[in-house]
Design a protein around this nucleic acid. Sequence first.
RNA 1: GGAGAGAUGGCAGAGCGGUUGAAUGCACCGCACUCGAAAUGCGGCAUAGGGGCAACUCUAUCGGGGGUUCGAAUCCCUCUCUCUCCGCCA
Length: 442
Amino acid sequence: MFDIKWIRDNPDAFDAAMSQRKNVSVRSSDLIAIDERRRAIIVRLNEAQEKRNSLSKQIGQAKAQKDEARAQELMAEVARLKEIIPEGEAEERAVEKELRDILSAIPNMALDDVPVGDDEADNVEYFGANGTAETAAKARPAKPSFTFAPKEHFEIGVVEKDMDFEIAAKLSGSRFVVLKGQIARLERALGQFMLDLHTTEHGYLEIQPPVLVRDDALFGTGQLPKFEEDLFFTPHGESRLALIPTAEVPMTNFVRETILAEEELPLRFTALTPCFRSEAGSAGRDTRGMLRQHQFDKVELVSITTPEESINEHERMLACAETVLQRLGLHYRVMTLCTGDMGFGARKTYDLEVWLPGQDTYREISSVSVCGDFQARRMEARYRPSGEKQAPRYVHTLNGSGTAVGRCLIAVLENYQQEDGSVLIPEALQPYMGGLTSIGGK
RNA sequence: GGAGAGAUGGCAGAGCGGUUGAAUGCACCGCACUCGAAAUGCGGCAUAGGGGCAACUCUAUCGGGGGUUCGAAUCCCUCUCUCUCCGCCA
Protein backbone atom coordinates (compact mmCIF):
# COMPACT_ATOMS: atom_id res chain seq x y z
CA MET A 1 0.00 0.00 0.00
CA PHE A 2 1.21 3.45 -0.83
CA ASP A 3 2.02 6.13 1.72
CA ILE A 4 -0.12 9.16 0.95
CA LYS A 5 2.71 11.41 2.11
CA TRP A 6 4.95 9.87 -0.51
CA ILE A 7 2.34 10.46 -3.20
CA ARG A 8 1.97 14.05 -1.99
CA ASP A 9 5.73 14.56 -2.37
CA ASN A 10 6.14 12.59 -5.61
CA PRO A 11 2.95 13.00 -7.63
CA ASP A 12 4.66 12.76 -11.02
CA ALA A 13 6.58 9.60 -10.16
CA PHE A 14 3.37 8.06 -8.89
CA ASP A 15 1.42 8.90 -12.05
CA ALA A 16 4.22 7.64 -14.26
CA ALA A 17 4.37 4.33 -12.37
CA MET A 18 0.61 3.84 -12.49
CA SER A 19 0.43 4.52 -16.20
CA GLN A 20 2.64 1.45 -16.73
CA ARG A 21 0.24 -0.81 -14.85
CA LYS A 22 -2.70 -2.53 -16.41
CA ASN A 23 -6.25 -1.35 -15.72
CA VAL A 24 -5.20 1.30 -13.25
CA SER A 25 -6.72 4.73 -13.71
CA VAL A 26 -6.03 6.35 -10.34
CA ARG A 27 -4.35 9.77 -10.44
CA SER A 28 -2.29 11.48 -7.79
CA SER A 29 -4.34 14.66 -8.05
CA ASP A 30 -7.51 12.82 -6.98
CA LEU A 31 -5.75 11.29 -3.99
CA ILE A 32 -4.15 14.56 -2.98
CA ALA A 33 -7.52 16.31 -3.10
CA ILE A 34 -8.97 13.75 -0.71
CA ASP A 35 -5.92 14.10 1.51
CA GLU A 36 -6.32 17.87 1.66
CA ARG A 37 -9.91 17.46 2.68
CA ARG A 38 -8.78 14.97 5.28
CA ARG A 39 -6.20 17.28 6.77
CA ALA A 40 -8.59 20.21 6.93
CA ILE A 41 -11.02 18.04 8.89
CA ILE A 42 -8.24 16.98 11.25
CA VAL A 43 -7.24 20.55 11.96
CA ARG A 44 -10.81 21.54 12.84
CA LEU A 45 -11.30 18.45 14.96
CA ASN A 46 -8.03 18.85 16.82
CA GLU A 47 -8.87 22.43 17.73
CA ALA A 48 -12.22 21.40 19.17
CA GLN A 49 -10.65 18.52 21.08
CA GLU A 50 -7.99 20.75 22.52
CA LYS A 51 -10.64 23.15 23.76
CA ARG A 52 -12.63 20.34 25.32
CA ASN A 53 -9.59 18.83 27.00
CA SER A 54 -8.47 22.06 28.60
CA LEU A 55 -11.98 22.94 29.77
CA SER A 56 -12.42 19.47 31.23
CA LYS A 57 -9.22 19.87 33.21
CA GLN A 58 -10.49 23.15 34.57
CA ILE A 59 -13.74 21.47 35.56
CA GLY A 60 -11.74 18.90 37.45
CA GLN A 61 -9.82 21.61 39.28
CA ALA A 62 -12.96 23.56 40.10
CA LYS A 63 -14.58 20.44 41.51
CA ALA A 64 -11.47 19.69 43.55
CA GLN A 65 -11.76 23.16 45.06
CA LYS A 66 -15.47 22.63 45.69
CA ASP A 67 -16.23 25.56 43.41
CA GLU A 68 -19.46 24.11 42.04
CA ALA A 69 -20.63 27.35 40.44
CA ARG A 70 -17.47 27.65 38.39
CA ALA A 71 -17.73 24.01 37.37
CA GLN A 72 -21.28 24.46 36.12
CA GLU A 73 -20.25 27.50 34.16
CA LEU A 74 -17.45 25.60 32.44
CA MET A 75 -19.68 22.64 31.73
CA ALA A 76 -22.12 24.91 29.96
CA GLU A 77 -19.28 26.26 27.89
CA VAL A 78 -18.10 22.83 26.84
CA ALA A 79 -21.62 21.68 26.04
CA ARG A 80 -21.67 23.07 22.54
CA LEU A 81 -18.46 21.17 21.69
CA LYS A 82 -20.44 18.02 22.36
CA GLU A 83 -22.11 18.43 19.03
CA ILE A 84 -19.22 19.39 16.86
CA ILE A 85 -16.71 16.83 18.12
CA PRO A 86 -18.64 13.63 17.29
CA GLU A 87 -19.48 15.20 13.97
CA GLY A 88 -15.82 15.90 13.26
CA GLU A 89 -14.85 12.40 14.37
CA ALA A 90 -17.39 10.88 12.02
CA GLU A 91 -16.12 13.04 9.17
CA GLU A 92 -12.55 12.09 9.90
CA ARG A 93 -13.39 8.40 9.98
CA ALA A 94 -15.28 8.65 6.71
CA VAL A 95 -12.54 10.46 4.84
CA GLU A 96 -9.83 8.17 6.23
CA LYS A 97 -11.81 5.17 5.06
CA GLU A 98 -12.35 6.74 1.67
CA LEU A 99 -8.63 7.27 1.27
CA ARG A 100 -7.70 3.87 2.62
CA ASP A 101 -10.19 2.07 0.37
CA ILE A 102 -8.65 3.66 -2.68
CA LEU A 103 -5.04 3.20 -1.56
CA SER A 104 -5.58 -0.46 -0.68
CA ALA A 105 -6.71 -1.22 -4.24
CA ILE A 106 -3.69 0.41 -5.90
CA PRO A 107 -1.00 -2.02 -7.10
CA ASN A 108 2.66 -1.70 -6.25
CA MET A 109 5.08 0.34 -8.29
CA ALA A 110 7.59 -1.42 -10.51
CA LEU A 111 11.33 -1.06 -9.94
CA ASP A 112 13.17 1.02 -12.53
CA ASP A 113 14.74 -1.97 -14.28
CA VAL A 114 11.44 -3.74 -14.89
CA PRO A 115 10.58 -3.78 -18.59
CA VAL A 116 7.56 -1.68 -19.49
CA GLY A 117 4.90 -3.60 -21.36
CA ASP A 118 1.28 -4.69 -21.63
CA ASP A 119 1.22 -8.46 -21.29
CA GLU A 120 3.32 -11.63 -21.26
CA ALA A 121 4.48 -10.96 -24.81
CA ASP A 122 6.56 -8.10 -23.42
CA ASN A 123 8.31 -10.16 -20.74
CA VAL A 124 12.08 -10.32 -21.16
CA GLU A 125 14.26 -13.37 -20.75
CA TYR A 126 16.68 -13.08 -17.84
CA PHE A 127 20.07 -14.77 -17.68
CA GLY A 128 21.15 -13.86 -14.16
CA ALA A 129 22.62 -10.75 -12.58
CA ASN A 130 25.77 -10.76 -14.70
CA GLY A 131 24.70 -13.54 -17.02
CA THR A 132 24.36 -13.92 -20.76
CA ALA A 133 22.47 -16.40 -22.92
CA GLU A 134 25.68 -18.44 -23.05
CA THR A 135 26.40 -18.57 -19.31
CA ALA A 136 22.77 -19.34 -18.59
CA ALA A 137 22.69 -22.15 -21.13
CA LYS A 138 25.72 -23.67 -19.45
CA ALA A 139 24.22 -23.50 -15.96
CA ARG A 140 20.81 -24.82 -16.88
CA PRO A 141 19.86 -28.33 -18.00
CA ALA A 142 19.56 -28.73 -21.76
CA LYS A 143 16.31 -29.30 -23.57
CA PRO A 144 15.79 -33.07 -23.91
CA SER A 145 15.61 -34.69 -27.33
CA PHE A 146 13.22 -37.47 -28.21
CA THR A 147 13.31 -40.22 -30.81
CA PHE A 148 9.52 -40.32 -30.71
CA ALA A 149 6.76 -37.72 -30.38
CA PRO A 150 6.58 -36.86 -26.67
CA LYS A 151 3.10 -36.99 -25.18
CA GLU A 152 1.35 -34.64 -22.85
CA HIS A 153 1.56 -35.80 -19.25
CA PHE A 154 -1.96 -37.24 -19.01
CA GLU A 155 -1.45 -39.34 -22.15
CA ILE A 156 1.68 -41.13 -20.96
CA GLY A 157 1.21 -44.85 -20.43
CA VAL A 158 2.13 -45.08 -16.78
CA VAL A 159 0.13 -41.98 -15.97
CA GLU A 160 -3.15 -42.87 -17.54
CA LYS A 161 -4.43 -45.21 -14.87
CA ASP A 162 -2.98 -43.39 -11.84
CA MET A 163 -3.95 -39.80 -12.63
CA ASP A 164 -7.70 -40.00 -12.39
CA PHE A 165 -9.80 -37.03 -13.39
CA GLU A 166 -13.04 -38.99 -13.56
CA ILE A 167 -13.09 -39.99 -9.91
CA ALA A 168 -12.05 -36.46 -8.97
CA ALA A 169 -14.93 -35.02 -10.97
CA LYS A 170 -17.31 -37.38 -9.19
CA LEU A 171 -16.02 -36.15 -5.84
CA SER A 172 -15.40 -32.49 -6.43
CA GLY A 173 -16.14 -31.45 -10.00
CA SER A 174 -13.83 -30.17 -12.67
CA ARG A 175 -10.27 -28.94 -12.00
CA PHE A 176 -9.56 -31.57 -9.37
CA VAL A 177 -7.45 -34.67 -9.69
CA VAL A 178 -6.93 -37.92 -7.83
CA LEU A 179 -3.39 -39.29 -7.91
CA LYS A 180 -2.76 -42.93 -7.14
CA GLY A 181 0.06 -45.39 -6.71
CA GLN A 182 3.45 -44.41 -8.04
CA ILE A 183 2.18 -41.09 -9.40
CA ALA A 184 0.95 -40.10 -5.95
CA ARG A 185 4.27 -41.23 -4.54
CA LEU A 186 6.18 -39.22 -7.12
CA GLU A 187 4.25 -36.09 -6.17
CA ARG A 188 5.08 -36.75 -2.52
CA ALA A 189 8.73 -37.36 -3.38
CA LEU A 190 8.94 -34.04 -5.21
CA GLY A 191 7.56 -32.13 -2.25
CA GLN A 192 9.92 -33.82 0.20
CA PHE A 193 12.89 -33.26 -2.08
CA MET A 194 12.17 -29.54 -2.42
CA LEU A 195 11.59 -28.99 1.30
CA ASP A 196 14.78 -30.84 2.21
CA LEU A 197 16.74 -28.82 -0.32
CA HIS A 198 15.57 -25.45 0.99
CA THR A 199 15.87 -26.33 4.66
CA THR A 200 19.24 -28.08 4.57
CA GLU A 201 21.04 -26.11 1.85
CA HIS A 202 19.31 -22.74 1.55
CA GLY A 203 18.73 -21.81 5.17
CA TYR A 204 14.93 -21.72 5.21
CA LEU A 205 12.98 -22.64 8.34
CA GLU A 206 10.41 -25.35 7.72
CA ILE A 207 6.87 -24.28 8.55
CA GLN A 208 3.54 -26.07 8.81
CA PRO A 209 1.08 -23.19 8.61
CA PRO A 210 -2.72 -23.18 8.82
CA VAL A 211 -4.30 -23.39 5.39
CA LEU A 212 -7.38 -21.50 6.57
CA VAL A 213 -6.84 -17.82 7.29
CA ARG A 214 -8.88 -14.78 8.18
CA ASP A 215 -9.53 -11.76 6.00
CA ASP A 216 -6.94 -9.62 7.81
CA ALA A 217 -4.14 -11.90 6.66
CA LEU A 218 -5.36 -11.74 3.07
CA PHE A 219 -5.47 -7.98 3.24
CA GLY A 220 -1.87 -7.97 4.47
CA THR A 221 -0.50 -9.81 1.47
CA GLY A 222 -2.81 -8.05 -0.97
CA GLN A 223 -5.36 -10.68 -2.01
CA LEU A 224 -8.08 -8.54 -0.43
CA PRO A 225 -9.92 -6.36 -1.12
CA LYS A 226 -9.40 -6.67 -4.88
CA PHE A 227 -9.14 -10.38 -5.61
CA GLU A 228 -11.83 -11.91 -3.46
CA GLU A 229 -13.30 -13.83 -6.40
CA ASP A 230 -10.10 -15.84 -6.82
CA LEU A 231 -10.43 -17.32 -3.33
CA PHE A 232 -12.39 -20.08 -1.65
CA PHE A 233 -14.10 -19.24 1.61
CA THR A 234 -15.72 -21.39 4.20
CA PRO A 235 -18.23 -20.08 6.75
CA HIS A 236 -17.04 -20.03 10.33
CA GLY A 237 -19.44 -18.93 13.04
CA GLU A 238 -20.68 -15.51 12.07
CA SER A 239 -17.60 -14.96 9.96
CA ARG A 240 -15.59 -16.87 7.39
CA LEU A 241 -12.15 -18.26 6.73
CA ALA A 242 -10.36 -18.43 3.40
CA LEU A 243 -8.45 -21.39 2.04
CA ILE A 244 -5.00 -20.09 1.31
CA PRO A 245 -4.18 -19.50 -2.37
CA THR A 246 -0.50 -19.83 -1.41
CA ALA A 247 1.52 -20.32 1.78
CA GLU A 248 2.84 -16.82 1.15
CA VAL A 249 -0.26 -15.61 2.98
CA PRO A 250 0.26 -17.28 6.36
CA MET A 251 4.05 -17.11 6.32
CA THR A 252 4.33 -13.44 5.36
CA ASN A 253 1.72 -12.56 7.96
CA PHE A 254 3.91 -14.08 10.67
CA VAL A 255 5.38 -10.60 11.07
CA ARG A 256 2.07 -8.77 10.91
CA GLU A 257 1.86 -5.96 13.50
CA THR A 258 5.26 -6.70 14.97
CA ILE A 259 8.46 -4.74 15.42
CA LEU A 260 11.45 -7.02 14.84
CA ALA A 261 15.03 -6.37 15.85
CA GLU A 262 17.35 -5.86 12.90
CA GLU A 263 19.47 -8.77 14.17
CA GLU A 264 16.55 -11.13 13.53
CA LEU A 265 16.62 -10.39 9.80
CA PRO A 266 16.53 -11.92 7.34
CA LEU A 267 13.78 -14.36 8.21
CA ARG A 268 13.44 -17.20 5.72
CA PHE A 269 10.46 -19.57 5.81
CA THR A 270 9.43 -22.47 3.62
CA ALA A 271 6.35 -24.67 3.63
CA LEU A 272 4.75 -27.40 1.59
CA THR A 273 1.00 -26.81 1.55
CA PRO A 274 -2.02 -27.33 -0.59
CA CYS A 275 -3.12 -24.15 -2.34
CA PHE A 276 -6.66 -23.32 -3.35
CA ARG A 277 -7.71 -21.11 -6.23
CA SER A 278 -11.16 -20.68 -7.64
CA GLU A 279 -9.73 -19.95 -11.10
CA ALA A 280 -12.58 -17.57 -11.70
CA GLY A 281 -12.24 -16.13 -15.17
CA SER A 282 -10.07 -18.91 -16.55
CA ALA A 283 -12.89 -21.08 -17.89
CA GLY A 284 -11.72 -22.92 -20.95
CA ARG A 285 -8.00 -22.45 -20.24
CA ASP A 286 -5.87 -25.53 -19.67
CA THR A 287 -8.86 -27.76 -19.14
CA ARG A 288 -7.01 -31.00 -19.89
CA GLY A 289 -4.55 -32.52 -17.49
CA MET A 290 -3.54 -31.21 -14.08
CA LEU A 291 -1.89 -27.97 -15.12
CA ARG A 292 -4.57 -25.69 -13.68
CA GLN A 293 -6.41 -27.03 -10.65
CA HIS A 294 -8.55 -25.68 -7.86
CA GLN A 295 -6.24 -27.44 -5.41
CA PHE A 296 -2.53 -28.10 -5.82
CA ASP A 297 0.55 -28.56 -3.69
CA LYS A 298 3.28 -25.97 -3.66
CA VAL A 299 6.54 -25.41 -1.81
CA GLU A 300 6.68 -21.72 -0.99
CA LEU A 301 9.61 -19.53 0.03
CA VAL A 302 9.17 -16.32 2.03
CA SER A 303 11.88 -13.88 3.12
CA ILE A 304 11.61 -10.87 5.39
CA THR A 305 14.54 -8.47 5.00
CA THR A 306 15.75 -4.93 5.49
CA PRO A 307 15.16 -2.49 2.61
CA GLU A 308 18.88 -2.57 1.82
CA GLU A 309 18.96 -6.33 1.36
CA SER A 310 15.75 -7.06 -0.50
CA ILE A 311 17.15 -6.81 -4.02
CA ASN A 312 19.99 -9.21 -3.20
CA GLU A 313 17.56 -11.51 -1.49
CA HIS A 314 15.44 -11.53 -4.63
CA GLU A 315 18.35 -12.84 -6.71
CA ARG A 316 19.18 -15.33 -3.98
CA MET A 317 15.61 -16.61 -3.86
CA LEU A 318 15.53 -16.99 -7.62
CA ALA A 319 18.69 -19.09 -7.39
CA CYS A 320 17.06 -21.26 -4.70
CA ALA A 321 14.11 -21.97 -6.97
CA GLU A 322 16.37 -22.59 -9.97
CA THR A 323 18.35 -25.14 -7.99
CA VAL A 324 15.24 -27.32 -7.76
CA LEU A 325 14.96 -27.55 -11.53
CA GLN A 326 18.71 -27.96 -11.99
CA ARG A 327 18.85 -30.89 -9.57
CA LEU A 328 15.92 -32.48 -11.33
CA GLY A 329 17.56 -31.98 -14.71
CA LEU A 330 14.63 -30.02 -16.05
CA HIS A 331 15.19 -27.49 -18.82
CA TYR A 332 13.79 -24.04 -18.10
CA ARG A 333 14.09 -20.35 -18.77
CA VAL A 334 13.70 -17.29 -16.55
CA MET A 335 11.55 -14.35 -17.54
CA THR A 336 11.45 -10.89 -16.01
CA LEU A 337 7.79 -9.95 -16.01
CA CYS A 338 6.94 -6.65 -17.63
CA THR A 339 4.96 -3.96 -15.79
CA GLY A 340 1.67 -5.09 -17.32
CA ASP A 341 2.09 -8.76 -16.36
CA MET A 342 3.25 -8.36 -12.77
CA GLY A 343 1.12 -9.27 -9.79
CA PHE A 344 -0.58 -6.72 -7.56
CA GLY A 345 1.97 -6.54 -4.75
CA ALA A 346 5.21 -7.01 -6.66
CA ARG A 347 7.90 -4.48 -7.47
CA LYS A 348 9.68 -7.01 -9.65
CA THR A 349 8.95 -10.62 -10.54
CA TYR A 350 10.92 -13.43 -12.13
CA ASP A 351 8.98 -16.36 -13.54
CA LEU A 352 10.64 -19.74 -13.93
CA GLU A 353 9.20 -21.47 -16.96
CA VAL A 354 9.87 -25.17 -17.28
CA TRP A 355 10.04 -26.89 -20.63
CA LEU A 356 7.10 -29.21 -21.31
CA PRO A 357 7.96 -31.32 -24.37
CA GLY A 358 4.45 -32.78 -24.59
CA GLN A 359 3.03 -29.29 -24.97
CA ASP A 360 6.11 -28.14 -26.88
CA THR A 361 6.23 -24.98 -24.79
CA TYR A 362 7.52 -23.36 -21.61
CA ARG A 363 5.08 -23.13 -18.68
CA GLU A 364 5.33 -21.18 -15.44
CA ILE A 365 6.43 -23.34 -12.54
CA SER A 366 7.61 -20.68 -10.13
CA SER A 367 7.16 -16.98 -9.59
CA VAL A 368 9.64 -15.05 -7.44
CA SER A 369 8.70 -11.54 -6.35
CA VAL A 370 10.12 -8.72 -4.30
CA CYS A 371 7.37 -6.57 -2.79
CA GLY A 372 9.39 -3.82 -1.12
CA ASP A 373 7.42 -2.36 1.78
CA PHE A 374 4.08 -2.76 0.01
CA GLN A 375 2.87 -5.69 2.11
CA ALA A 376 4.70 -4.46 5.20
CA ARG A 377 2.62 -1.29 5.21
CA ARG A 378 -0.56 -3.28 4.92
CA MET A 379 0.54 -5.52 7.77
CA GLU A 380 2.30 -2.91 9.92
CA ALA A 381 5.40 -5.11 9.89
CA ARG A 382 8.47 -3.20 10.99
CA TYR A 383 11.93 -3.63 12.42
CA ARG A 384 14.09 -1.45 14.65
CA PRO A 385 17.47 -0.71 13.10
CA SER A 386 20.37 -1.62 15.38
CA GLY A 387 22.79 0.93 16.79
CA GLU A 388 21.77 4.38 17.99
CA LYS A 389 18.19 4.61 19.06
CA GLN A 390 16.26 4.64 15.81
CA ALA A 391 12.67 4.80 14.69
CA PRO A 392 11.15 1.58 13.36
CA ARG A 393 11.17 1.08 9.59
CA TYR A 394 9.03 -1.12 7.41
CA VAL A 395 10.55 -4.45 6.48
CA HIS A 396 10.69 -5.68 2.91
CA THR A 397 8.95 -8.90 1.97
CA LEU A 398 9.65 -11.45 -0.76
CA ASN A 399 7.99 -14.62 -1.84
CA GLY A 400 8.61 -17.27 -4.41
CA SER A 401 7.54 -20.75 -5.32
CA GLY A 402 10.20 -23.32 -4.87
CA THR A 403 8.38 -24.79 -6.79
CA ALA A 404 4.79 -25.66 -7.67
CA VAL A 405 4.76 -29.39 -6.95
CA GLY A 406 1.90 -30.35 -9.26
CA ARG A 407 3.41 -28.60 -12.23
CA CYS A 408 6.79 -30.05 -11.40
CA LEU A 409 5.23 -33.49 -11.48
CA ILE A 410 3.95 -32.75 -14.98
CA ALA A 411 7.41 -31.58 -16.00
CA VAL A 412 9.12 -34.71 -14.68
CA LEU A 413 6.60 -36.95 -16.39
CA GLU A 414 6.83 -35.21 -19.75
CA ASN A 415 10.60 -34.74 -19.75
CA TYR A 416 11.48 -38.24 -18.52
CA GLN A 417 8.87 -40.20 -20.48
CA GLN A 418 10.01 -43.19 -22.52
CA GLU A 419 8.57 -44.53 -25.73
CA ASP A 420 7.09 -47.54 -23.93
CA GLY A 421 5.01 -45.34 -21.65
CA SER A 422 7.30 -45.63 -18.62
CA VAL A 423 8.98 -42.68 -16.93
CA LEU A 424 12.56 -42.51 -15.63
CA ILE A 425 13.07 -41.13 -12.13
CA PRO A 426 15.59 -38.26 -11.91
CA GLU A 427 18.54 -39.20 -9.75
CA ALA A 428 17.77 -36.58 -7.11
CA LEU A 429 14.35 -38.14 -6.54
CA GLN A 430 15.41 -41.77 -6.38
CA PRO A 431 16.12 -41.71 -2.62
CA TYR A 432 12.57 -40.47 -2.13
CA MET A 433 11.19 -43.23 -4.36
CA GLY A 434 12.73 -46.12 -2.50
CA GLY A 435 15.57 -46.32 -5.01
CA LEU A 436 13.37 -46.78 -8.05
CA THR A 437 14.97 -45.65 -11.29
CA SER A 438 11.78 -45.75 -13.31
CA ILE A 439 8.07 -46.33 -12.98
CA GLY A 440 5.77 -48.14 -15.34
CA GLY A 441 8.48 -50.26 -16.93
CA LYS A 442 7.83 -53.92 -17.62
C1' G B 1 -20.35 -27.04 23.81
C1' G B 2 -20.73 -25.22 29.37
C1' A B 3 -18.52 -22.11 33.58
C1' G B 4 -15.03 -18.56 34.98
C1' A B 5 -10.49 -15.21 34.60
C1' G B 6 -7.69 -11.97 31.79
C1' A B 7 -5.38 -8.54 27.56
C1' U B 8 -1.52 -1.79 30.08
C1' G B 9 5.08 0.81 26.93
C1' G B 10 10.91 -3.70 24.30
C1' C B 11 9.81 -7.10 28.76
C1' A B 12 7.73 -7.57 33.77
C1' G B 13 4.03 -5.08 36.37
C1' A B 14 0.99 -0.85 39.22
C1' G B 15 -3.18 2.05 38.42
C1' C B 16 -9.81 0.81 38.36
C1' G B 17 -13.74 8.24 36.74
C1' G B 18 -10.21 14.08 37.14
C1' U B 19 -3.35 18.00 35.48
C1' U B 20 -1.88 9.62 34.15
C1' G B 21 0.96 9.16 27.91
C1' A B 22 0.61 6.34 32.06
C1' A B 23 4.07 4.57 38.89
C1' U B 24 7.97 1.01 39.75
C1' G B 25 11.58 -2.64 38.18
C1' C B 26 14.42 -4.80 34.15
C1' A B 27 16.50 -3.99 29.36
C1' C B 28 18.52 -0.11 26.25
C1' C B 29 21.15 4.88 25.16
C1' G B 30 23.93 9.29 26.89
C1' C B 31 26.80 11.78 30.80
C1' A B 32 29.59 11.70 35.54
C1' C B 33 32.92 8.69 38.57
C1' U B 34 37.16 4.94 36.81
C1' C B 35 43.56 3.56 33.83
C1' G B 36 39.41 0.51 31.90
C1' A B 37 35.22 -2.45 33.44
C1' A B 38 31.70 -3.50 37.24
C1' A B 39 28.97 -0.99 40.92
C1' U B 40 26.85 3.81 41.82
C1' G B 41 24.68 8.68 40.58
C1' C B 42 22.19 11.99 36.98
C1' G B 43 19.50 12.31 32.50
C1' G B 44 17.05 10.07 28.31
C1' C B 45 14.08 6.18 26.23
C1' A B 46 6.39 4.38 22.78
C1' U B 47 3.59 4.76 18.08
C1' A B 48 0.84 7.44 14.60
C1' G B 49 -1.49 11.86 12.50
C1' G B 50 -1.79 17.33 12.16
C1' G B 51 0.21 22.65 12.48
C1' G B 52 4.93 25.45 12.23
C1' C B 53 11.04 27.68 8.30
C1' A B 54 12.33 26.31 13.11
C1' A B 55 12.39 26.15 18.40
C1' C B 56 8.19 23.86 19.34
C1' U B 57 3.16 22.55 19.70
C1' C B 58 -1.64 20.02 19.28
C1' U B 59 -4.48 15.45 18.68
C1' A B 60 -5.17 10.23 19.04
C1' U B 61 -3.61 5.56 21.05
C1' C B 62 -3.48 1.33 27.89
C1' G B 63 -6.05 -5.86 22.58
C1' G B 64 -9.97 -3.95 18.19
C1' G B 65 -14.71 -1.37 17.54
C1' G B 66 -18.90 1.20 19.71
C1' G B 67 -21.25 3.69 23.99
C1' U B 68 -21.98 6.53 28.92
C1' U B 69 -19.63 11.27 30.86
C1' C B 70 -17.78 18.05 31.03
C1' G B 71 -13.76 14.31 31.49
C1' A B 72 -12.44 7.00 30.51
C1' A B 73 -6.54 2.82 31.04
C1' U B 74 -10.47 3.03 34.75
C1' C B 75 -17.90 2.21 33.87
C1' C B 76 -21.21 -0.37 29.91
C1' C B 77 -21.83 -3.21 25.14
C1' U B 78 -19.47 -5.98 21.39
C1' C B 79 -15.52 -8.48 18.69
C1' U B 80 -10.76 -10.90 18.71
C1' C B 81 -7.23 -13.47 21.36
C1' U B 82 -5.08 -15.90 25.87
C1' C B 83 -5.56 -18.80 30.37
C1' U B 84 -8.21 -22.26 34.06
C1' C B 85 -12.00 -26.01 35.00
C1' C B 86 -15.85 -29.42 32.90
C1' G B 87 -17.66 -32.04 28.52
C1' C B 88 -16.51 -33.92 23.64
C1' C B 89 -12.77 -35.38 20.26
C1' A B 90 -8.34 -36.86 15.52
